[in-house]
Simulated scan of single mutants.
Amino acid sequence: MSRRQVVFGMLGTQLDAGEGPGRWQKWRPTVSLGMHEDFLPDRIELLLDERRYAKLARVVCEDLQQMAPGLEVRRHDTYLADPWEFEGVYATLHDFLASYPFQPEEEDYYVHITTGTHVAQICWFLLTESRHFPGRLLQTSPPRKQDGAAGSYAVIDLDLSRYDHIAQRFAQQQLQDRDLLKSGIATRNAAFNAMIAQIETVATRSRAPMLLMGPTGAGKSQLAKRVFELKKLKHQLPGRFVEVNCATLRGDGAMSTLFGHTKGAYTGASSDRAGLLRSAHQGLLFLDEIGELGLDEQAMLLRALEEKRFLPVGSDREVESEFQLIAGTNRDLQHSVLEGSFREDLLARLNLWT
C-alpha cells in the first residue's frame, strides 16, 4: 500500500484570495497544491480563522475539489490574536501539532510555508527543524505569467545529515572557530579541547554572561579577547572590547569607573564620565577578578545585566547599555557566597568555565 501524502498549511488571506471566473487566471498557492501532476497530496490540513475567512476557505476548498476530486481537505479553526507576534504564533502552532494524531509509519508530511505571515513561516521552520513536526518543508512558487498555471514547487528536508557538503562546511567552520579561541595552538589535551568546544558553542549561539575560572596568568583575558574576536567576525557584537581588573577598583572610584558619574557627583568630579558599562554598549565587557568587587557594585552590575539599565553616580536619570559580560576570577566564588562577600544571585547569572 502506498504512503499517503499530507500537506499542512495556512490559508493565505491575500495570496489565496479571488472571486469570480477571473480567479482562475490568478496563481493561488493553496489551490496550486491540487494542480501538480507529479505531486498530488492525498490530504490537506488547512489552518484558518473560520470567523473571519470562512467564505474564502469555502471557495479555496471547492476549487481544490474541482482540480483534484480525490483530494481531502480538513479545515482547522485556528485563531491568532496577532499573526505577527512570535510567541503567540509559535505557541498556537506548537499546541496544534502536539495534539495532532501523526501516523509517520503510514503517511509522509509536508508543511506549506508559502502562505501565512513571515512570523508563521519562521515558526513552521523552527517546529520542523526541532522535529515537533515530523516532516519536510514544501515551498510553492508562481508561474512567470499569471495564466492559471500551477507554478513550481520545491521540497526541503531540514535533516542536514543528508547534505554532506553542507555538513562538512559546518564542521570546518567549527574547527576554525575553535582554533581561533585556542590562539592557533594545537593540543591533544582532551579536557582543554572539550572546554574550548563548549565555549565555542556558547559564544556563537548566546549572549549570556560567562565566568572564566582559573589561577592568575592562566590566560583568561586572552580567551575573553578571542571570544570577542570570534563574535565580531560573525557580526554579533558591533561594539568594543572593554576590559578592567576589578582588583584595581577601590572606594568611590569603583562605582564611577563602572557606571559613570555626573559632574559634581563627588569631590573631583569636574565633568561627566560615561563609565565602562556604557563604553561597552553593543560590545563585550571583561571584568577580571570579579570577586574583588564590592557588594554595592555587584548589586548594580546584576541590575544592569537583568534590565540593561542603571544609574550613574550622582544622577537621577537612568542610562541604558546592552553588552555581553565575561568575568574572570581566581577565587572560589561559591565559598565567597557562603562568606557573604559575593552575591549568590549574581553568581547564578554566570555560566562557569574552568
Rank of each mutant, 00 (worst) to 15 (best):
Tyr90Cys: 11
Thr140Trp: 06
Tyr110Val: 00
Asp159Glu: 14
Phe96Ala: 08
Ile166Gly: 00
Phe102Trp: 13
Leu138Trp: 04
Pro143Tyr: 04
Glu105Cys: 01
Asp159Leu: 13
Val111Tyr: 06
Pro134Asp: 05
Lys145Pro: 00
Glu106Asn: 06
Gln139Phe: 13
Trp124Phe: 15
Val155Asp: 02
Tyr110His: 00
Leu93Trp: 11
Thr117Tyr: 03
Val89Ile: 07
Ser161Cys: 12
His165Ser: 14
Gln168Ala: 15
Glu106Ser: 07
Ala167Ser: 14
Pro142His: 06
Pro142Phe: 07
His112Met: 07
Asp164Lys: 09
Leu126Ala: 13
Gly151Val: 08
Pro101Met: 01
Gln121Gly: 12
Tyr153Lys: 04
Ala171Arg: 13
Asp164Asn: 08
Glu106Gln: 10
Ala91Ser: 12
Ala120Phe: 04
Asp147Glu: 06
Asp147Ile: 00
Phe170Glu: 14
Phe133Pro: 09
Thr115Lys: 06
Arg162Phe: 04
Gly116Asn: 09
Leu160Pro: 01
Thr115Leu: 06
Leu138Cys: 05
Asp95Asn: 12
Phe102His: 05
Thr140Ala: 11
Ser152Glu: 13
Leu137Glu: 05
Leu127Pro: 14
Thr115His: 11
Phe96Val: 09
Leu138Glu: 02
Val155Cys: 11
Ser99Tyr: 00
Arg169Ile: 07
Leu93Lys: 01
Arg136Thr: 09
Thr117Met: 01
